[in-house]
Design a protein around this nucleic acid. Structure first.
Length: 301
DNA sequence: CACCTAATAT
DNA sequence: TATATTAGGT
């Protein structure tokens, strides 16, 4: 038994940027309607689809924006939706159009963002790792269920592929381990450590070799303050920022902010402070003028 | 309705 | 290319 191999979650991003770090975001590039339009996502009313399994309490994500991390008298300005002026406006139109049918920019899955994704899936377990739950656990502002679903689909294919050539069977084998390379997917997915349980394959026939038990199996309910501040409901705001050109120097997070408080409730005795990520909007990418949405993590790993 | 897989569109 | 979107089934 090696206790060293299961430290894939050695430590989550644990860098609580002090309130001072929160920069006054300025969505000067984002029009008010646009910003509001982006917020259309299902507010997690702290309810989890526990299907029919009484498995304690699933990862409830108590939308508790009023984190104690934000002292009231602090100069911290929680990304308030402040609109400067709408210099830019939507497609053709006329100004304040119900941003209902507006399309969001493509989401860019950065390694960090993907890591969060993997961590969420790992901690949820394969069973509960469904788009909605993953999305809620990730607590990434701006992430939609479809974003996760789409990515999850690819990720599953990637896992399947890995198992395909990893599980050799016995004896001998060996051989080719550079066959399935989809440079496209590999590059991203390989950047993140894949939890061991993901690469397990069920062997109905012989082989009663019990794999490792996922740590996510143990869960004890730890309800956070449910009756906190009723006034604070969902997290209806997206922090968007725009940074010009990340020259060849280094990436400096122009805007860092966090939203929901960390949700602890993992099976492991260790604390896994889930850190919410922030998103960043990048315009004018090196693409043909494509606008993409980039989610920035609150730390580096 | 949410999910999954495959195929397709951008 | 990497995501988004759609279709069709569970």
């Amino acid at each position: 038994m090696r206790e060293d191999d299961s430290n894939w979650f050695s430590k989550w991003e644990e860098e609580l940027p002090p309130p001072e770090e929160l920069m006054p975001l300025s969505q000067t590039l984002i029009t008010p309607d646009l910003a509001l339009a982006f917020d259309i996502r299902t507010p997690p009313p702290h309810n989890l689809p526990s299907t029919t399994s009484p498995q304690c309490h699933p990862p409830t994500t108590p939308p508790n924006p009023s984190s104690h991390l934000a002292p009231p008298g602090s100069a911290t300005k929680p990304c308030s939706a402040e609109f400067a002026d709408s210099s830019e406006l939507g497609p053709g139109s006329g100004g304040d159009e119900p941003a209902r049918t507006l399309k969001r920019p493509r989401l860019v899955w950065t390694p960090q963002l993907h890591k969060r994704f993997v961590d969420a899936v790992a901690h949820l377990g394969i069973k509960n790792a469904v788009p909605k739950t993953i999305m809620q656990l990730m607590s990434v502002d701006g992430l939609t269920r479809e974003n996760v679903a789409s990515h999850l689909q690819k990720y599953r294919l990637y896992l399947k592929r890995m198992q395909g050539l990893s599980v050799g069977g016995g004896g001998g084998g060996g051989g080719g381990l550079s066959a399935s390379s989809d440079p496209a997917t590999d590059h991203l997915f390989a950047s993140s450590p894949v939890p061991p349980h993901f690469l397990h394959q069920v062997r109905p026939s012989s082989d009663h070799f019990l794999p490792f038990v996922p740590v996510a199996a143990l869960q004890h309910h730890q309800m956070a303050a449910a009756a906190g501040h009723p006034q604070l409901q969902p997290q209806y705001h997206r922090q968007v920022g725009h940074f010009g050109a990340p020259q060849n120097g280094q990436f400096e997070h122009p805007f860092l902010s966090r939203q929901p408080p960390p949700i602890h409730r993992m099976g492991a005795p260790m604390h896994n402070p889930v850190q919410p990520y922030v998103e960043d909007l990048e315009s004018d990418n090196a693409n043909g003028g494509r606008k993409v949405l980039t989610l920035f993590p609150t730390g580096d790993d």
